[in-house]
Design a protein around this nucleic acid. Structure first.
Length: 501
RNA sequence: GGCGGCAUGGCCAAGUGGUAAGGCAGAGGAUUGCAAAUCCUUUACCCCCAGUUCGAAUCUGGGUGCCGCCUCCA
């Protein structure tokens, strides 16, 4: 079996084969940088990051382009409100966006074109569309004429005739009156007083929203790309219009596969900047939600379905990630690897660039089954939920082992034999971008709570109480330490360990 | 009004014809002075009605509820 993806264009799940064998070209619609990114953006980019990592892991050479819209009405509004220039607003939000993406372990795109840096390509394409009659200019604006495109609406499943009535009610603004058809959209907007502008054959102004993507795709990746990505809210009008422009200009299909991710909902409603019901990525991270928890939260649902954002679901993901993290610690924590005699090879193991076809041959057959289960899951239209189930099953004994070692147990020969399982878990987790984080007992958290000397003193006190069978006193000490986040573990040999929780 | 999607246990969520993955939470047992951890066991009339079929959560028709897009939005 091979990768199958649900293509919005055909409304079917189809077998994916790139145009050029071994190479995949991907364009992903990026953000308009007028504000910080929220969980909805995180979902989208996490999901596409997994697609990209999976393709790379499968052996493809992937070229991944993602734009940044740095000129737009909203940015101008924000700039006016804050007394800053459009560039200042864009720049600060671009930096914040890139920080957020890095924090979420999302691979940076190969190319990140910005609208303001692609004006030549944009103007060239508008010029072509105007010359061919696909677009027309009107009072310094240039509009795309949808009536000239017989297949307009093929992505979103709308027909112009059916939509006309509903749309006619919006013919009120000055801009609308310049359009020949209500669905016509601006390729170039003539400058208005007080706005920044760029020169063009149609007079000073700035590009419309949709044209930048068409121009960038052609410039960076060519006329036809393998996969075009974006949120489901972009299907209409943005992607529909991209198709119209690109295909009118190039006379070739824009993209072979159109993939769209579902929205993040809050109380059953879409999280969005305009509704104001959003939680930004950085506020989530600042509130103590780990990046990997966020990834797990997102990947537990199928990418095309709506995902409800609730505190409970996030907490469940945090606990779930904690368990996976414990298993991943096993091969990367020097104390554990020493106990298991796994050696440097284990610590150095990284996700392999390709699936190892020999894996499992002469090894644990169960591991090969797991590996294949993981591949089958992702091949099935990126069923990350099913892929995670494989990871959790791989992790279960590793996690148990890590906990036993943490509590001072000796490693058995059987434990040492789990190295291959750990390596597979690490490799597959990496495909989902789930990677080890500092353990909770890291230096930062160790600074909180009682000093080790104090704890030891209390443990001694408790030991005395236990020896005298004054159990209520002993338990009082346990409870007191627990309130301070310290858990006591009595070992069979009579010793007492403690860990911070 | 038009187009599209969704409804699975306490919560989240896979599963598209052969009686239901996984995560979180819960219960019982073993073990422990008590704990912790570990191990074992365990928790589903798949929104409703009708139909197709030997057999349906899964297909068809109808109904109900919810959501997205049709204006900027990942």
């Amino acid at each position: 079996m091979s990768l199958r993806l649900t293509n919005t264009l055909t409304r079917r799940t189809e077998s994916f084969q790139p145009l050029v064998p071994g190479e995949v070209s991907i364009y992903c619609c990026g953000v308009t940088v007028y504000d910080l990114c929220h969980l909805g953006h995180a979902r989208s980019y996490i999901v596409w990051d997994v697609l990209r990592r999976y393709l790379i892991w499968s052996g493809y050479r992937v070229k991944f382009v993602q734009n940044i819209t740095d000129i737009d009405d909203k940015i101008l509004q924000r700039a006016a409100k804050e007394g800053r220039s459009m560039q200042e607003v864009s720049e600060s939000n671009i930096v914040a966006f890139q920080d957020d993406m890095a924090a979420l372990n999302i691979l940076p795109p190969d190319r990140v074109p910005r609208a303001t840096q692609c004006l030549d390509a944009i103007r060239a394409m508008i010029g072509e569309l105007e010359s061919s009659g696909a677009a027309y200019s009107a009072d310094g604006d240039v509009y795309f004429a949808v009536m000239g495109q017989p297949d307009y609406g093929k992505l979103s499943g709308r027909s112009l005739s059916e939509q006309q009535e509903g749309a006619s009610g919006r013919l009120n603004s000055e801009e609308e009156s310049r359009k020949r058809h209500p669905f016509d959209f601006a390729l170039w907007k003539g400058v208005k007083p007080g706005e920044p502008s760029f020169p063009s054959p149609w007079g000073p102004g700035r590009p419309g929203w949709h044209i930048e993507c068409s121009a960038m795709v052609r410039q960076e990746l060519g006329n036809t790309i393998d996969i075009h990505l974006g949120g489901a809210d972009l299907i209409f009008p943005h992607h529909e219009n991209e198709i119209a422009q690109s295909e009118a200009a190039n006379a070739e299909p824009l993209a072979r596969f159109w993939l769209h991710n579902g929205m993040v909902n809050v109380d059953g409603e879409k999280m969005s900047k305009s509704l104001g019901n959003f939680t930004t990525i950085r506020s989530l991270l600042a509130s103590g939600v780990s990046p990997m928890t966020l990834r797990l939260f997102v990947l537990q649902a199928h990418y095309r379905k709506p995902l409800d954002f609730t505190r409970e679901a996030l907490d469940a993901a945090a606990t779930g990630w904690h368990g996976l993290n414990e298993a991943l610690q096993l091969g990367l924590n020097p104390t554990f690897t020493a106990a298991l005699r796994w050696g440097a090879a284990a610590a150095a193991a990284q996700p392999a660039p390709d699936p190892d076809p020999d894996f499992g041959h002469g090894h644990d057959v169960g591991l090969e089954t797991s590996r294949q289960g993981f591949i089958d899951a992702l091949d099935d239209d990126l069923n990350t939920s099913a892929a995670l189930a494989v990871l959790f099953e791989l992790a279960r004994p590793l996690r148990a082992l890590a906990r036993r070692l943490e509590r001072g147990s000796e490693a058995s020969g059987e434990d040492r034999a789990l190295q291959g399982r750990w390596q597979l878990l690490q490799q597959l987790s990496g495909v989902l971008g789930l990677e080890l984080e500092a353990s909770p007992s890291s230096a930062a958290e160790a600074a909180i709570g009682p000093e080790p000397e104090v704890i030891q003193a209390l443990i001694s006190e408790r030991l005395a109480a236990r020896q005298q069978k004054r159990y209520p006193d002993a338990d009082a000490i346990r409870d007191q330490l627990r309130a301070d986040g310290i858990e006591l573990i009595d070992r069979p040999d009579g010793g007492t360990e403690w860990i911070r929780r």
